[in-house]
Design a protein around this nucleic acid. Structure first.
Lengths: 111, 111
DNA sequence: ACCTCAAATCTATAGGCTTCGATATGGGTA
DNA sequence: TACCCATATCGAAGCCTATAGATTTGAGGT
């Protein structure tokens, strides 16, 4: 189960539409927190909390410069997460879970 | 913001490690609910609840046959979600959010 | 018709999440 | 040093979610 937790944190972070939108905004390039705040109707403390979650899951990196904090995407995490979906549609047919053999990609770690 | 909700539901569903694991198991092929239940320490009602969420977000399809319900991945939804991550690492440089122009992929729908 | 079994639904509860206002931190500036 | 301003953190309120037990539904077998 532990092997899923890394991706799970990313998915939890993206499970909030505002955070998904922030990530999308950052795909265009680095942004200062105050610029992100301008785009939303939320308090500064709420945005700060969202950015913390996005950083903690690895999707976003923060860079402090003077009074300001600039945020940008961590493309490594984006790629890793994307691979989760690639794996779902590949490697088919090798599993005999139907026979209850505990053989599939996730079975091993559940005992 | 609305354009994100479809993906948001998928991410929320995958934000639970057990559900992420179930999805991974299903990538090996169709499975009966009772077979999935064998792999986890959870009650039948809890599994049923998880499967309902996975179906509602479109990641999983259910097929009833007699007393049993077989679940499988909806590869269309998997592909669509994967594209969300592809978009994050492409189309760079076209955004002038840094000037606060409200131009990025998500900005338009936030006013 | 009755019983059995798989699955879904109902109900309640405990824990987590989002949000805000208030406060703290820490850099720049006068 | 004293004062702004951008962020981060704290604490509380309300909402959402995960979970299990009990019940219901519905298909198959006796």
């Amino acid at each position: 189960m532990e092997r899923y937790l890394e991706n799970t944190k990313v998915f939890k972070a993206l499970g909030d539409p505002k955070r998904a939108m922030i990530v999308d905004m950052l795909s265009c390039g680095e942004l200062c927190a105050c610029m992100i705040l301008e785009k939303f109707e939320m308090s500064q403390s709420t945005l700060s909390h969202h950015m913390k979650l996005l950083c903690e899951c690895g999707l976003v990196k923060g860079r402090e410069q003077g009074k300001w904090t600039y945020y940008s995407l961590d493309t490594d995490t984006v790629s890793r997460t994307k691979q989760f979906f690639s794996a779902l549609t590949s490697d088919k047919g090798s599993c005999i879970c139907k026979e209850g053999a505990g053989c599939c990609k996730g079975c091993d770690e559940n005992e």
